[in-house]
Each structure stands twice: as structure tokens, then as C-alpha cells.
Design a protein around this nucleic acid. Sequence first.
DNA 1: ATTAGCACTCGCTGCTAGAGAGTGCTAACA
DNA 2: TGTTAGCACTCTCTAGCAGCGAGTGCTAAT
Lengths: 343, 343
Amino acid sequence: MLTERQLLILQVIVDDFIESAHPVGSRAISKKEHIPFSAATIRNEMADIEEQGYLEKTHSSSGRVPSEKGYRYYVDHLISPAGQTHKGNVISHMLKDGFFEFEQIVQMSAEVLSELTNYTSIILGPELFETKLKQVQLITLSAHTAVAILVTNTGHVEHRSFSIPAEVNPSDLERMVNILNTRLHDVPILKLQEIFNTEIAAMMKMYVEDFDRSYDYLKAAFLSDHPVKLYIGGKSNILRQPEFNDVDKIRSFFTMMDKEEEIISLLKHTDHGINVSIGKENEVDAIKDFSLITSSYQLGDGQLGTIALLGPMRMEYKKVISLLNIVSNEMTDALYMWYKNNE
Amino acid sequence: MLTERQLLILQVIVDDFIESAHPVGSRAISKKEHIPFSAATIRNEMADIEEQGYLEKTHSSSGRVPSEKGYRYYVDHLISPAGQTHKGNVISHMLKDGFFEFEQIVQMSAEVLSELTNYTSIILGPELFETKLKQVQLITLSAHTAVAILVTNTGHVEHRSFSIPAEVNPSDLERMVNILNTRLHDVPILKLQEIFNTEIAAMMKMYVEDFDRSYDYLKAAFLSDHPVKLYIGGKSNILRQPEFNDVDKIRSFFTMMDKEEEIISLLKHTDHGINVSIGKENEVDAIKDFSLITSSYQLGDGQLGTIALLGPMRMEYKKVISLLNIVSNEMTDALYMWYKNNE
DNA sequence: ATTAGCACTCGCTGCTAGAGAGTGCTAACA
DNA sequence: TGTTAGCACTCTCTAGCAGCGAGTGCTAAT
């Protein structure tokens, strides 16, 4: 167990190290105004704290650095839930703007988050397995080309252009769209493929001449690829962190950031509220000396998306946590409004 | 003037350096099979070549490295136009696929180009000042929300969701869209803003009640931000190049890549064919020790887009040039087909 | 004209010494 | 008994120096 004074010292060390990125020595601590103890006393305390695993040395005669356990304790017990609400205003303003497109807002939020923190921000769109198709529209641009537009109940819009082979009859096309609209309304996106292959195929065969060609084209146009959408902000902002002084670290970081699936799997927990993973607590090896802070936001219908900041273990937890709290709340609010309008 | 033999040596040096990234010494050159001269002879020649500015030393007793002038000469005169057509097939296949969306293809081309070369690829979409609006569609999703869809003559589709304030009358909205469709057909995108502010405003005042609100919303929805679209592939692939051993270089590179406008201005020449800018030949300071190779592709109606590869001066010019040639031709072909279908 | 030989230059590696920052321990102190 | 001053010790970091290797330029011989 740590004494009061040890907690104070631990807090000072973590705060200081988060700010400076340099190991913290006893003398430096004793110089702070709210620390009335001598360097020697602090040395003794530090040895105790280290013994309990909250601190580490980078080498035998260096100052102390928080261990993962130290960060964990700091995050769990030593952070006062400071409310710097002024930071939220930037994003609040963005989101309160009457009209908006979901994706644009998310992308901007990601950029702003990264800009405010100098870490890399990641936002995971709503998980599509709850998302349902709301409406299908087909706009023909010419005799040979058309745009298919899919609108989901979350307000997400996707378009896809495709060319219409000469053999396909325009009236067939229209009939097909009607079929789609009737049958696919309120169908979960993830079940599209299945329904296409069974019911739709059957229905179409009845109504549409030259079934095969039309079917293939339409199917390709409608079944797009991404199940979840990922928004990353400020991949390069993180280079401002002093821990990125090592070229290999940069390389491995960027290599990891290119692997979308890995990142998605990392964020795909749907707990409510803030979640902090420090160092090896992360399941993915590639970020075993990073910290990842995630928060969830909610769509109008209760679905969850994830919003996260990835940075060095020496992260400004206090700032980041309150910021993420604000942003996820703002997003939830804004999306609730949007959803109500859309209903 | 350089003699035959000096040209041969220059070529060997550039080739070798491009491959190895190490300064090339006289002994190494004399060892190559097709070089029957001794190291001493080569030293003499190298001194001459350096005197004429085609080579440099990194320090007084180092091997030689091509100067910018050397690269320039190499590119202009020493590259045999090798036709490695097999590389083109990858992209050819992608593009020949019957249906496609312009943006998807471009993005994929960018990725593939970068993957094949380990440089960063940049593709500039068609310049919109020639692009004209073809059709406007408004799909209402609910009483309060709608999607505006703009289709251009290049087949580019843009959508924008916005909410409809309660005060706006649905029939007004419909009337507005009709007005837009009549008046804006074939209007260049760049003139949209202007026309909105004058003619459209005037016409709408006549037909539409509660003009002000409707107008603002529609305007905001229609005048989107990006005049040209930029596709970047493999920003992090370039980290594989040995010249990126320096953290500062990496930082400045990524900082530059974040400035879209700068990159656009860099590529906004519309010469036909391949263009190589070496080192300080580039107008932007940030890439004064990079080489930029651009090529143009053509849209069906003659508009130009730009496709480029950005890498170290020590670039595999031969490979890159032939690759860019192939890709830009493939893209031009594919887009011509698309355009004909769309007409 | 070409080449072998040689002195010279420069970067790189490894070694050493000294300075600086920090620790742990001991002994003195309140 | 808890706190502190003092001191020896440890470790990193930097500068300086020597030796090696790769490469050059020049000279003299072929």
C-alpha cells in the first residue's frame, strides 16, 4: 500500500514525466512549491514506490519513470476529473451547425481531436450490422450509366456509379429498383447479400427479362465492401511526440496504421464510457508501448461507435479523457437530433 | 562535352547509385564486366565529369554521387525507353472491369503505383473548371432531411445530406430543384457560386415563399469545398527508402504531405506527356531534394488530370517513367470508354 | 593514352576521460 | 523515530583521439 505522501510523489512524477518526457529526479521534485520534503526523503520514498512496482528506472542511476502499473494507478485514482469545458466548444460549434453530413463531421472531429492533443485520433463509424437500408434510388445518367444511391436509417448515404450493359432494358431496370425498394426496406445491411442471393434473385427472374446480366451488375453496385468505416486524424501529428525520435518506431507505427482491420479489431469493444488501455494491456502487439483511450458515442437508435486517441504511454490522460468525454457526448447529442429529424 | 566513355561511366554511376544509395567508387566501377578500364583511368574520367557538374562528392575522399545536373542528363539522354509492359497488366485489369467508379479506380491506381515503386503516388482529379454540372437530384429522406445529388459531365457524383428547416415548404423545395435543373444544366462547376448569387437568387425570389431560409440551405448544400480532388497512395511506403533515415526528414515530408494546396499547385501543370522535376527544379521548397515525375491522363472530353510519383532524387527513373506511361495511357483509355457511354 | 603505385583525406568505430545527473546509504539531527 | 545533509558510487553523454578502410589525386612508368 502506498502512503499519502507516496501518492503525492507518484502523482508529481507522472505529471512531470508526462510533460517533460524526461526521467524525474529527487531534487527536481523537492524543488516544487507544494513539496516540503528534502531530496533525500523523496529518494527514500521513491525507492519504496519503485519496490511496489509503480515506478521504474531507465538505468541504475537515473531518475524515475512511471511503470505501466504506475500509469494505471494514476489514471484510476490520481486524476481529478477536471472540467475544461472550453475545449469542447470548438467541436460543439461544428456539430450544432444545422445541416451536416455525418462523415464530414466525423472526419473533422478526428482532425480537431488530433490537433488539440498531438496524438492520432481514430473514429470508428457505427457498426453496420444494426444499420438498416432505408431507401434505394437509381438515377440514370444516360442510356448506359446510372448511379445507385443507398440511404440507411442512420442517415448514411452511399452512391455507386455503374454502367448498364446494352442488353439491359431500361424498363427492366426500373422494375428492379421497385422490387428492391419494396423488399429491402428496413433490411439490415449485413443481410443484403443473403437476400440478394435468394429472394431477390427469385423475384427478379419472374419480372425481368435477361435476368442474368442485370442481376450481376446491380448486385455488384449494391454490395459495397466496407462493413465499418474508419476515420483517422493526424497520423503525422504524433510525430511531434519526442518518443518518435527513432526511425524504426515511426516505420512500425505507420505500418500498423495501414492495417485497417487490426485497428478496427482494436476498437471493437462496445463498452459505454471511457476506456484506457496502457501499454501491454493492449491486445495488439504493435502498440504495446502506446496507450489507447477509447470512448463510445451513441447513434440515435442506440448503436455505438467508437472514438479513440492513440499516443505514447506518456499521455496527457487528464486532458485526453475530459476531451474525449466532451466530444463523445457532443456527438451523441448531435446524432440524436439528426436521428429524430430523420425518423 | 562528355566523351562516349564518360557517358558510359556516368550512366554506370547513376545506375549503381540508384540501386545502392551509396557513393560509387572508381574500383567498384572498374570491376563491372562491361568496363574494361582500370580504376585509375576511371578516376581521371570521373574528375573530368565532376568538373563539368554531372557528379559530386559527399566529402573530399568519397565516391561519386550524381548531381542534379547528372540526374537530369541521365533522364534526358541515358535512359533507354524500356518497355516492361507486364507491369501494366495489373492496372489494366483493374480498369477494364466493366463497371467502376472513377474515384475508386483512381484510389486503387494510386495504391498500386506506390506499392510497385515504394514511392508516394499522387493523382490529381480532373480540373473542375472545365467540368460542368449535368444533373441535380434531390431525394427527401424524411420531412426534415434530404440528399442533394450533383452529377457532372465527367461522371463524377457528389452527394450532400442536409436538414430542411421546418419553415421550408416541401413544394417550394421541389420548385427550387426544378429551377436549378433548368438553369444549371451544363454550367461549369466553378461558376456555380456566381450564378447562385445572381440569377438563381432572383428567380427563386419570384417562385418561392420564404425565400431566405431555403436559399441559404440549398446554397450551402450545393457549393461544396474541393475544387480538385487529390488521391495519395502509400504515404508510408516511402519510408522504405534509405534516405528516410533521418527523423527530421520524415517530419518535414509528412508535414508537407498534409498541405493539400501546396501539392495541388505542384501538379497543376497541364503539359501532355511525362515530366520530370529533379531536386531544386521543383518550385516548392519542401521537396527540393525529391524528384517528382508527373504524367497526364485525359478525360474523354479532353480535360487533363495529373498522375505523379514523388520519391528521392535517387529514383528508379527508368522503371517509374515507363510505369507512369502505361498507367496514364490505361487511365485515358478507360476514361474514354466511360465518357462515350456517358454521352 | 593507360595504368600502377603511393601519399593523403575523410568518415566510421572503438576507446578513454571527464562532467553531470542521479541514486543509495550512513550518520547526524530535531 | 522520521527527516535530512553528505558522500561515494553508478551510469549516461560528450569530446577527443587512434586506427582502419575506402576512396581520391597525382606522379611516374608502361
